[in-house]
Design a protein around this nucleic acid. Structure first.
Lengths: 254, 254
DNA sequence: GTTCATTTGTACGTATGTATA
DNA sequence: GTATACATACGTACAAATGAA
């Protein structure tokens, strides 16, 4: 049986050069040799010190950046991040099972596609401003092979992008990916709100359900870096046909 | 005002070369030009096609890999991932607003604390096996300063750890942290299921609500690395008093 | 089972662009 | 404006894994 330092040594021996450099720097940072908030040695200095090329140093620093341990800025340098921020356990990584719902598992039967002016009521439901115009695409969503719809989906898209409506018909992946592709914006934040309510009267018939069944409402707002709303989706499900599942995992450290 | 393609073009013009290559490939994949599960062109081919160096192609592919869109294997090639798996949401970092709920914001008024044998019904609700014995701690949860309860909370803990019940009374942070501390296990995974239902008859009175109001049910299962269930919590909220909010953010690099 | 061409991974060198101080 | 430091991009070479002959 190998002890820890043996194991570590063995590990280091097999590791790539940039991984060794990264481990060395990680160790130095953890030991407090580089003050938090301070600048790390420059890439050129590190290359000299470890007797490797700058390329190798950059690959090593990339690993540390991916771990949130350091942060680099062009012209400035590479800074050691606060351990409060890095801490790896503080951010948990989740796989969002139900976003998968929007790919191959389900089909979306579009019923309406039109530009609408938001009423006070629907605006508050969507978290948008009343009176604004949005492209609204609505329809029933079915699980593959099932005849009862799993819910009613509505997409709201800024009316200036109304022309991508036709693309959504043959879309395979999530719609917001299409939106990113065609607007040039990048979604950096998704806000999700899940609530319960009574079954909306006007949907009971299409959903082939009873007004006594509760509804699960899932609203997602897709925001760009500049906080522009690129898309809002609202999904309304009969309580007995859908539940929102999610798994959070502690990130394992390298 | 710029139209879409102008904006996209402008954005592309400012972007780095490898970002442009990545965007082009992303676009091709989204359009279905590269079959899912199939091999992408080799790095050398892409370099020739885009008239860039292999280095630039590799940087572009790195972006796509980070997004989970493709996956590379030495000796084999670069494969287009299933859209079920990719969708880049696989690594998103979320701040779980509602887990905060269990700390300072709210108070928990314990009403019952006893070891129960799970009925078939409650077992299926909890995702546990019927007939097993669990410590059940239940009570009303209040927001600070409010007189109406925001919901009914139940904690289920393996009966062999029943002695930590008394600790929960004065607990400040999340209960599962206590559990980790006293069992020596570490929670590596939390499964969450959110569903809607009718208001359970036996809770309407304590919650001071009406049977006509729907209920939002949030179940969390805390698992150790060995998939041992360390804790299950079930929260039942009147639809008008609670909604589950969550924010997902793309991890920023650099 | 071995050999061999293919393909990605690692590592080096060099040069230039661009943001920062 | 100038020097510095990271970012981008070109090139080359070899290592290691893969898969087919």
């Amino acid at each position: 049986m190998l002890n820890d330092s043996d194991k570590q040594a063995q590990k280091q021996q097999k590791a790539s050069l940039y991984a060794k450099v990264a481990d060395a720097l990680r160790h130095e940072i953890n030991e407090g040799r580089h003050p938090v908030g301070g600048l790390l040695d420059t890439e050129a200095e590190l290359a000299r010190r470890f007797q490797v090329s700058r390329h190798t140093v950059r690959e090593a620093l990339r690993l540390l950046r991916d771990d949130g341990l350091v942060s680099s800025r062009r012209g400035s340098g590479t800074r050691v991040m606060s351990p409060l921020v890095n801490a790896r356990d503080s951010h948990q990584v989740m796989s969002i099972n139900d976003l998968v719902m929007f790919s191959g598992d389900t089909t979306f039967a579009i019923e309406t596609s039109e530009v609408v002016k938001l009423s006070q009521e629907s605006a508050s439901l969507l978290g948008l401003e009343a009176g604004q115009e949005w492209l609204q695409i609505s329809g029933l969503r079915y699980r593959k092979g099932e005849s009862l719809p799993m819910g009613w989906s509505s997409y709201y898209i800024p009316h200036e992008y109304a022309h991508i409506a036709r693309l959504i018909h043959r879309a395979t992946g999530p719609v917001f990916v299409l939106m990113e592709d065609f607007t040039g914006y990048k979604v950096t934040e998704v806000q999700q709100k899940i609530s319960a309510s009574a079954m909306p009267r006007h949907l009971a018939e299409s959903l082939q359900t009873d007004l006594s069944v509760a509804a699960l409402m899932v609203r997602r707002t897709y925001l760009t870096e500049e906080s522009k709303v690129l898309q809002v989706t609202l999904n309304i499900h009969p309580a007995d046909r859908f539940q929102h599942a999610m798994t959070m995992r502690r990130v394992r450290k390298g």
